[in-house]
């Protein structure tokens, strides 16, 4: 069997024996800077805008709902099942499909929709990233198939960066099959190094911070 052969070759090469313990790996290097919320918000907005993403600050969930309603007017949209979107009144906006739990149905809707609307579990200030963890509330394809993506995030979910994310979630696999970090719109520069947005994923991304 290749498994045993390969493990055997590895052990022989390294001079180790089966089941032999290992010394502790180098200590994890996590450094979380101290950044207040207003600074986090200005940093994340600057980072997203630098990637040609759009940003909006809404004072209340209802304001966020109003902003999204205007942004999707005349378009078809799919919203994830995140409770926060319901709280903002987004799930029940005209033209928005939400509450879908069937894989095939969701896929068909996402493939046809103009806009996908999600919340995010976290956002990272220094890189301008959204962190979305798979769950009954967030599916993978809503932020992926439609040509535009709107994410509505309560401000207390904005972390300073990767280090803080991995200190809160030391092992994302314990929680879900998938965690994705989204940093700006989908892009490519594969032909003559010319930047084009929206090659497979959404070419437009809008992040609404609430609060």
């Amino acid at each position: 069997m290749s498994r045993d052969n390969i493990l055997h070759r590895v052990r022989t090469a390294l001079g180790r024996s089966a089941g032999q313990a290992v010394a502790d790996p180098p200590p994890v290097r996590i450094r979380i800077p101290d950044v207040d919320m207003e600074k986090r918000i200005s940093t994340i907005f600057a980072a997203i805008e630098a990637l040609a993403g759009k940003t909006h600050r809404a004072a209340t969930p209802a304001d966020a709902g109003g902003f999204v309603a205007a942004a999707i007017e005349g378009k078809s949209a799919v919203a994830s099942n995140a409770p926060f979107l319901a709280e903002c009144g987004i799930a029940s906006l005209p033209g928005v499909r939400s509450g879908i739990a069937d894989r095939e149905e969701l896929r068909g809707l996402c493939a046809a929709a103009d806009v996908g609307i999600t919340s995010a579990d976290y956002a990272l200030a220094d890189t301008g990233s959204l962190v979305i963890i798979s769950s009954p509330h967030e599916a993978r394809l809503v932020s992926l198939l439609p040509p535009a993506h709107i994410a509505v995030v309560p401000r207390d979910r904005i972390l300073t960066g990767l280090d803080e994310l991995f200190s809160i979630l030391p092992n994302p696999a314990a929680v879900a099959s998938s965690m994705v970090l989204i940093t700006g719109p989908s892009r490519t520069a594969d032909i003559e190094q010319i930047l084009v947005r929206g090659v497979h994923g959404p070419g437009q991304i809008t992040v609404v911070v609430v609060g």
Partner: peptide
């Protein structure tokens, strides 16, 4: 880039309650 546009952290097939994702997940070493 500070981070590439997408970073996916994937472990196993979709879990119960998750709407989408693969039913089978293999890693060939």
């Amino acid at each position: 880039q500070l981070l590439t546009v997408y970073t996916s952290f994937l472990s196993g097939p979709r879990r119960s309650g998750e709407t989408d994702g693969p039913d089978e997940f293999y890693v060939v070493l």
